[in-house]
């Protein structure tokens, strides 16, 4: 079994109103000097394989087909 973590983030240039709101909230809690907050998603997965190459290929396909919307999001894959 292979464990993996997929991280999906907004592309540069795509406005992130949620990130902005979080930034504002941190400021109001007294955390100064926090900039450029971008909210993203993390997916932890377990795959029934020991083939790391195939696992990476499959995860890439999963990202392209479902986990990320590649119009607005980037993704990165880490095998753990």
């Amino acid at each position: 079994m292979i464990k993996a973590r997929v991280t999906v983030t907004l592309k540069n240039g795509v406005l992130d109103p949620q990130g902005k709101a979080i930034e504002g909230a941190l400021g109001s809690l007294g955390f100064e000097g926090v900039h450029q907050i971008r909210q993203g998603k993390v997916f932890d997965l377990e795959l029934d394989t020991s083939d790391r190459v195939k696992a990476e290929e499959d995860l890439k396909a999963m990202c392209e087909k479902l986990l990320a919307n590649t119009v607005i999001e980037n993704y990165s894959i880490a095998l753990l």
Binding site: V14, L15, P17, A21, N69, V71, I72
Partner: peptide, 11 residues
Amino acid sequence: LPGALMRNSSL
């Protein structure tokens, strides 16, 4: 259709 629909800017 092209594009994407994101969270309203007002949240």
